[in-house]
């Protein structure tokens, strides 16, 4: 547990995070680590608290207890500061700015960098990752297909030049073939040095992509380990990977 990163440094650490919505407790003491250069996934079913975890890291919801630390420094409680500190999120449901053009969406992603000259280079970088976006550079984001919108949401988050890229359900609502494309690009993004933390309901794809994984269930981490081990784990197969009889039913599978 203490040595998950081994030789590598811990880049992002979530420590004993608690979040509630009124009387409903969404996260009750979540802890996890993301090492420099890794892809880490958090899998879990609907309502397990995956999006809440992402929003709590980004300070979009109040962190009731616990903290999030980026290479030794706690992330602040204001979203715009978190982005400036080096964490950006491609949110669930993509949330592209429909009435703005593709280019304007990407420029919004770089908002926190001001007049940084690197922005133009990074635009080219994002276009090299997703050539489709370059073809549609002046189109309104609202007219893109679902897959293209997802690429735009990821590209927009990359434009902040994050040290850790957070992805909330990048496969949501997309056709399997497009999911494959997007996950291939995520690997490429990681190979270019971006550390990634993603939460996914599509456990198989997420575990195939990532180095390590955590299983989130009703607001708590119930299992963790190298993704290959989790993929082979019988309980997880039954609960999240469509194996056995309990596909999709996760309530008791891991308790």
């Amino acid at each position: 547990m203490t040595e998950v990163c081994g030789e590598k440094t811990v880049l992002l650490e979530v420590r004993d995070l608690h979040v509630s919505y009124g009387a409903i407790k969404a996260l009750t003491g979540v802890s996890l680590k993301v090492c420099e250069g890794e892809i880490v996934c958090v899998i879990g079913s609907n309502g397990a608290g995956k999006s809440t975890l992402m929003n709590a890291i980004m300070a979009m919801v109040r962190r009731e207890k616990g903290e999030v630390i980026l290479s030794g420094k706690p992330l602040e409680a204001k979203s715009f500061r978190v982005v400036q500190q080096g964490v950006s999120l491609s949110p669930e449901g993509r949330k592209v700015f429909a009435p703005l053009s593709v280019l304007e969406n990407l420029r919004m992603g770089a908002f926190s960098r001001g007049a940084d000259k690197g922005v133009e280079e990074d635009l080219e970088w994002v276009f090299s990752l997703f050539p489709r976006l370059k073809e549609r550079i002046d189109q309104y984001a609202g007219t893109l297909s679902g897959g293209e919108q997802q690429m735009l949401a990821i590209g927009r988050a990359l434009m902040a030049r994050p040290r850790v890229l957070l992805l909330d359900e990048p496969s949501l609502g997309l056709a399997p073939i497009i999911i494959k494309d997007i996950f291939r690009e995520l690997r490429r993004i990681n190979n270019e040095g971006v550390t990634i933390l993603l939460v996914e309901q599509n456990a198989r794809q997420a575990l195939l992509l990532s180095h390590r994984g955590y299983v989130l269930q009703t607001g708590q981490i119930v299992q963790e380990g190298p993704s290959a081990d989790l993929l082979a784990n019988a309980d997880i197969k039954a609960a999240y990977l469509g194996g056995g009889h309990g596909a999709g039913k996760t309530t008791k599978a891991l308790s």
Binding site: K78, F80, V83, K95, F97, P99, E104, M108, F111, A160
Partner: peptide
């Protein structure tokens, strides 16, 4: 640009590093 983005979705504009 940030104002136009926020007019569509204020919350997501905040996610872009805009001090809302």
């Amino acid at each position: 640009l940030a104002i136009r983005a926020a007019a569509y979705d204020l919350r997501t504009a905040g996610l872009m590093g805009v001090n809302v």
